[in-house]
């Protein structure tokens, strides 16, 4: 038979979280308690000789249904306040009385049952369930498949909203940008070709003036932008124009002074 420990632990694990349905203020707390109820019911199923149903309970209810509930809660906003004002007079007491009446009616009906529980029970493992599902209940299976597809299509239809404004694609956005007076072509890449092509140096336009907007705005904000005056000066100086390799080395020397010294030190050691 079933051990009382199992029953009472399941009873405590289900009834106490289920009461949050009546007393918890926030819907998220209710959803999490219902997850606990579902887990408790899964334990009860396994204890009652239905291991397959226990697994399905965990997968379908805690895994899918309650997560769907939480998803919708987040979608509509978790801060939805529940008005406690009674629009119908005495509705709270009538509701409690009705629910209590249903419970009492059911309990008294169950109390009149006189069943001796069967001693032997075929375990409800997946194989046994499948045998029954695909022989005696195969038509029901088919109908349930149709029902699931209908439900999926119904959800799509119910949540579908028609588009009220025309779609703004790439072409429309480009047109709006040009109408607003933006430059229709790409901005130039940073760096001075054949002399210095790092990202922090602005490119030079045909007249030799630096194009500030060619450098990334981030570097500008961080004050990591370099100036291209050296290269500009070099380009505008006709005496140096002939030489292919200008004073690039001397420029680099000042930057790499420290590293150069370190390398020299290594060589000295050798």
């Amino acid at each position: 038979m079933i051990s009382p420990v199992l029953f009472w632990s399941v009873a405590i694990l289900t009834v106490i979280p289920a009461l949050s349905l009546l007393f918890a203020k926030k819907a998220v707390h209710v959803a999490m308690s219902i997850v606990a109820v579902m887990v408790g019911l899964a334990v009860a199923y396994v204890g009652l000789g239905a291991p397959f149903l226990g697994a399905v309970q965990i997968v379908v209810y805690t895994g899918a249904v309650m997560m769907l509930f939480l998803f919708v809660l987040m979608l509509v906003g978790v801060d939805q306040r529940e008005s406690m004002k009674e629009t119908l007079v005495g509705q709270r007491w009538i509701a409690l009385f009705g629910a209590g009446g249903v419970a009492v009616l059911l309990i008294s009906a169950v109390g009149q049952l006189a069943y001796e529980p069967a001693e032997e029970m075929t375990e409800g493992d997946p194989e046994a369930i499948a045998q029954l599902l695909f022989t005696d209940y195969v038509v029901v299976m088919e109908i349930l498949g149709a029902l699931l597809i209908t439900a999926a299509v119904g959800a799509l239809v119910l949540t579908h909203t028609p588009r009220l404004t025309p779609r703004r694609g790439q072409a429309e956005r480009q047109r709006a940008r040009v109408l607003a007076g933006a430059n229709p072509v790409n901005r130039p890449m940073p760096g001075v070709y054949a002399r210095h092509n790092a990202l922090d140096v602005p490119a030079l336009d045909p007249e030799g003036k630096p194009i500030e907007e060619s450098v990334s705005r981030v570097l500008e904000i961080r004050h990591q932008m370099d100036t291209s005056t050296q290269y500009e000066a070099h380009l505008s100086d006709p005496s140096k124009r002939g030489t292919d390799k200008p004073d690039h080395e001397s420029l680099a020397k000042s930057d790499d002074a420290e590293t150069g010294e370190a390398e020299n030190g290594k060589e000295d050691e050798k």
């Binding site: 079933i2 029953f7 399941v10 629910a99």
Partner: peptide
């Protein structure tokens, strides 16, 4: 323990669920 105890547990849970539908 008789499995009928779980049916009583089910009726209690059913009552709580019905009260939630009517109250909230």
């Amino acid at each position: 323990m008789n499995p009928i105890a779980f049916v009583y547990l089910a009726t209690v849970l059913f009552g709580i669920g019905a009260a939630a539908v009517l109250l909230r």
